[in-house]
Structures are given as C-alpha cells and as structure tokens.
Amino acid sequence: MDLILEQFPIVVRALNVGFMQTLKLFFATLIGAVPLGLIITFGSMSRFKPLSYFTKIIVWIVRGTPLMIQLLIFYYFPGLVLGTPIWGSGEAGRFLAAAVAFIFNYACYFSEIYRGGIQSVPVGQEEAGLVLGMTKSQIFFKVKLLQMIKRIIPPMSNEIITLVKDTSLARIIALQEIIWAGQAFLKGSQGIAGAIWPLFFTGVYYLIFSGILTVLLGRLERKLDYFR
C-alpha cells in the first residue's frame, strides 16, 4: 500500500498525459465522423445507383472488418505499398493516422444510424413541406433534422460511449493513449517496474469520462422530450 502511495503521483501524471491523447482522439473522431457520416448517408441513399452501391460496399467493408485492422492498414499501407509514409513522423503522425481511421470507421457506423433516423421520419412530413412550397433543403433542415436527431440520440449515445473505449485500440499503431501509459509501468518506466495497478487504474478514467458523457447525452435526450 505504501508503495502504491509513493508511486501514485508519478503514475497519475503519466496517465493524465495518456488520457489527453485518448480525449484528443475521442473528440477528433466525433467532430470528423458526425458530418462525414451524413455525407455517407446521402451517398448510400442516393437515387444514382452506382454511387449508392459504391457507398454501401464501403460501409460494408468498414463495418465488416475490425477497427484494429483498419488502423494497421491506414498507418502502414502508404509506406509499405506506395513506398512513402504519408502521415508524418512521431506521435503527431500516428495521431493523424489514428484519427483518420477512427473518423472513417465511425462515420460508417453513424451513417447507418442516420439512415435509420431519416427513414423513420414519416413521408408525410416531407410532403407537407413540399405542398407548403418549401425547398428540399429547407424541409431537411427545418422539418426533418430535429425529428431525426431525436430518434438517433439513443443509438448515437451507445456508439459514443463505445468510442470512448475503442480509442484504446489506437495503441496497435503505438499511439500512446492511456492504456499504453498504464502498461508502461508493467515493463518499467520512470523508475517504476512491474506495477500492475496503473493499468487497472486507467479504468477509473474511462468510468468517470463515460459517466459524464452519459449524463450529458441523457440531458440532450430529455431536452428533446418536448415533442413526439
């Protein structure tokens, strides 16, 4: 116990640094994947068949393969096959590659949720907008979007909580997020070797963060309770 108390400040400092990477990856993914998902949705719902099939195949591939493999492919493929690494060196390059892979992966998942949301808005809403002389984009933004958001918040909340934990997969391309930081003390780092508890302690960070998100998303859900 004394040993842990002694190690605690050093470990927490290292875990904080790792958790910043985790948070950066989390928010970068969210900021990129939320709009990209919408573009993919429009692609897969397009009446232009080649585009719709193409998008659906991409979504199938991305959702049908493990994110871990996608991370490896995104990061190593350019250097392995094209001969030039494109991501830039060091931690920043790894972060960029991880963020791009995460954004792409999550955008595909989000796009399917969006599609469900869009299709769950009754046709009558669009027709009512049309006969009132509204344009398609007015109908989308002023009429359907909020109804769609209301319907997708529960499944999106699930995905977002999953994303918090999925960020740890980025350690496969040696992004030094919090799990990596915790594991470092197992092997030995900063004079602490063979310490198991830091790895388990990372769970506390995940718990607190996903707890905060759950509360915030629940609040958003309640905010849209005013209509049905």
Binding site: L72, Y75, Y76, F77, P78, G79, L80, G83, T84, P85, W87, S89, G90, E91, G93, R94, R171, I172, I173, A174, Q176, W180
Partner: peptide, 19 residues
C-alpha cells in the same frame, strides 16, 4: 535522431512501412 515508441509486435511492419 528521433525516438519513436512502437508496438513490438509491429516492428517489421514499422520498418517496411518506413514509419
């Protein structure tokens, strides 16, 4: 010189991928 921490399992891929 630039030191980069890698996942030991991926060391060959890191080399060949020029990372």
């Amino acid at each position: 010189v630039e030191f980069v921490e890698i996942d030991w399992d991926n060391k060959v891929m890191e080399l060949d991928g020029k990372t």
